[in-house]
């Protein structure tokens, strides 16, 4: 199970990187970043997986039993943070795309050569 999740995560990361590097449309590049992000999050969550254990939500307070019942909650808490930051970064990139489109009326990255030497 964890192998499926972690390999999917790595595959998504590669897919996102390919999108960032090869696409010409700015929106598609932003989507590439989002896919990369999702891949990293999946990898992080799957690293915290413990075989045969359930989500870290408890029914009763039982210190000795709880440790044998749940998966690692720390990566999940980190991913929660990462998702929110990813959302902020995506929103910011999309707004920059919007502004760039206003400037040149084009979404093609090849039409923005002002800073290219």
């Amino acid at each position: 199970m964890e192998y499926i999740a972690i390999s999917t995560g790595f595959a998504l990361m590669l897919l996102g990187l390919w999108g960032i590097l090869s696409q010409k449309n700015l929106i598609k590049i932003v989507l590439g970043f989002t896919i990369f992000d999702t891949g990293i999050n999946i990898v992080m969550v799957s690293i915290g997986y413990v075989k045969g254990k359930a989500a870290p939500i408890l029914d009763v307070i039982n210190a000795s039993e709880a440790a044998n019942k749940i998966v690692d909650p720390v990566p999940q808490a980190l991913v929660l943070t990462a998702i929110v930051i990813g959302l902020g970064v995506t929103a910011l990139m999309l707004v920059y795309v919007l502004k760039l489109h206003r400037e040149k009326n084009s979404l093609d990255i090849n039409s923005f050569k002002d800073l290219k030497w």
Binding site: V50, A66, A67, V71, D72, P73, V74
Partner: peptide
Amino acid sequence: GNETLGKTADYYAR
């Protein structure tokens, strides 16, 4: 794959 929780996670769980 992990068989048991790490040290930090174990503290949080307990």
